[in-house]
Simulated assay, not measured.
Amino acid sequence: MRSAGAEVIGPVPRADLVLDLIAEQQPDAAVLDVHLSDGDTAYPVATKPNVLGVPYLFATGDVRVSGASAGSRRHILEKPFVAAELVRVLSELVAAR
Score class of each variant (00 low, 15 high):
Met1Lys: 03
Arg2Ser: 14
Ser3Ile: 07
Ala6Asn: 02
Ala6Leu: 14
Ala6His: 03
Val8Leu: 15
Gly10Arg: 00
Gly10Met: 05
Gly10Tyr: 00
Gly10Ala: 09
Pro11Lys: 08
Pro11His: 12
Arg14Val: 15
Arg14Glu: 15
Ala15Lys: 00
Leu17Lys: 05
Leu17Ser: 06
Val18Lys: 00
Leu19Met: 13
Leu19Phe: 07
Ala23Ile: 02
Glu24Pro: 00
Glu24Asp: 12
Gln25Val: 15
Gln26Gly: 03
Pro27Gly: 11
Asp28Val: 03
Ala29Asn: 09
Ala30Thr: 06
Leu32Glu: 05
Leu32Asn: 01
Asp33His: 10
Val34His: 12
Val34Phe: 15
His35Lys: 13
Leu36Cys: 10
Asp38Glu: 15
Gly39Ser: 10
Gly39Lys: 07
Thr41Gln: 10
Ala46Asn: 01
Thr47Ile: 07
Pro49Ala: 13
Pro49Ile: 09
Pro49His: 01
Asn50Leu: 11
Asn50Pro: 00
Tyr56Phe: 15
Val63Lys: 05
Val63Ile: 13
Val63Tyr: 10
Val63Thr: 11
Arg64Lys: 08
Arg64Phe: 13
Arg64Trp: 11
Val65Pro: 00
Val65Ile: 09
Gly67Phe: 12
Gly67Asp: 11
Ala68Asp: 04
Ser69Thr: 09
Ala70Met: 06
Ser72Lys: 08
Arg73Ser: 15
Ile76Arg: 06
Ile76Val: 15
Leu77His: 08
Glu78Gly: 01
Pro80Ser: 07
Pro80Phe: 15
Val82His: 07
Ala84Cys: 03
Glu85Pro: 00
Leu86Gln: 06
Val87Gly: 00
Val87Cys: 07
Leu90Thr: 05
Ser91Leu: 01
Ser91Asn: 14
Glu92Lys: 08
Glu92Asp: 14
Val94His: 05
Ala95Ile: 04
Ala96Tyr: 04
Arg97Pro: 02
